[in-house]
Design a protein around this nucleic acid. Structure first.
Lengths: 168, 168
DNA sequence: GGAGTGATACTCGGATATCTGGTGTCCGAGTTTTCGCGG
DNA sequence: CCGCGAAAACTCGGACACCAGATATCCGAGTATCACTCC
């Protein structure tokens, strides 16, 4: 079981966007440079976040991405599912209904025991990710990120962010 | 995030082996036919379970596989990790330490917030899988599998199982 | 008839192809800005 | 000087290659069985 690398990128990018002023945008190029990752590939994942309704795009020059709704209403699960897909990790193919001992499908009233157990574990995982929002992540950054980095980031972002009122 | 199909096969096969008499074995061919899956490919996963110490193999004619330890001491997580590998699904690549705002690595005393959150969710998933054993799964089968299938399975397995005392 | 021995058949184990999905890149559609022109 | 319009620049969005890992298969190593021979 392996989670796409894009999930990490998406979570970090969403967190960065959440720390910007309301309505302010940041283009793919800036987000990619900030995280030191491929711009074109990051673009792919940002598109997935857009399709998932996590962020929204502003086209044209001085455009970019911004959150589609308040960071308090974006859970980690939202981001993970937008990029990785909502399908469960364990998919029961009902192999218990195959082979020489199988009978008509309608006779299997109760779901597969193994399927139930795996689904229960996965539900816990999802619930935990759903319980934490991007706003929670951002709130923790103040205490956990070195002061020096915070200052550097603040300065760098202020030079690349694009607000609605700003006129070049 | 996608769990290998072999995980499902491995869980079912381990459960079947757990329902056999002590020391009795079942060859790959029988396990594959019982579940209606590819024999050669199932073999690959059974090898993984062997390497993981879940089951053990008996070579030669009248050989096969059996549990390496009591079913009460085999958790679902053991089987999942034996086949899917023990690596965590989310791997933090520390992209926070890249880009124009990064400083020397030694300055990042506290772990990445996102990494912590993802790891916590994954820990819950693992704990849940660790809390349930193959013996628990087998115990539930009596109530959840149609009587008719239980009889068919009992008969079919008795014709393919190989006990230590049996002499052809 | 019983024991020993060689051939045999069956099993697991690892090495080898194939294929799907993640990884990575590029070019076109659309919009805002900007520059130039005319009034 | 101000308004209008066309061109341009920059953005996102989707379509197109590439590669690693899962999927699927085959053949060789090893062992218990079995048959045959000899005592």
């Amino acid at each position: 079981m392996k989670l796409s690398e894009g999930v990490e990128w998406g979570l970090h990018c969403t967190s960065v966007l959440a720390s910007l002023p309301t309505k302010a945008t940041l283009p793919t190029k800036a987000l990619a440079e900030y995280h030191g990752v491929s711009e074109t590939y990051l673009s792919k994942h940002l598109q997935a976040l857009t399709r998932g309704g996590i962020i929204e795009s502003v086209p044209g020059p001085r455009g970019g991405y911004r959150l589609a709704r308040p960071a308090t209403e974006i859970t980690l699960l939202d981001v993970v599912e937008a990029i990785d897909g909502p399908e469960p990790a364990f998919r029961c193919t009902e192999i218990r209904q195959q082979g020489p001992c199988a009978i008509e499908s309608s006779a299997y009233h109760l779901p597969c025991t193994i399927h139930v157990a795996m689904a229960r574990a996965e539900k816990l995982w999802r619930n935990e990710l759903r319980a934490q929002t991007i706003a929670d992540i951002v709130a923790q950054l103040d205490d956990r990120v070195p002061q020096r980095v915070q200052h550097l980031a603040e300065k760098w972002l202020s030079e690349h962010v694009r607000t609605a009122s700003e006129k070049a």
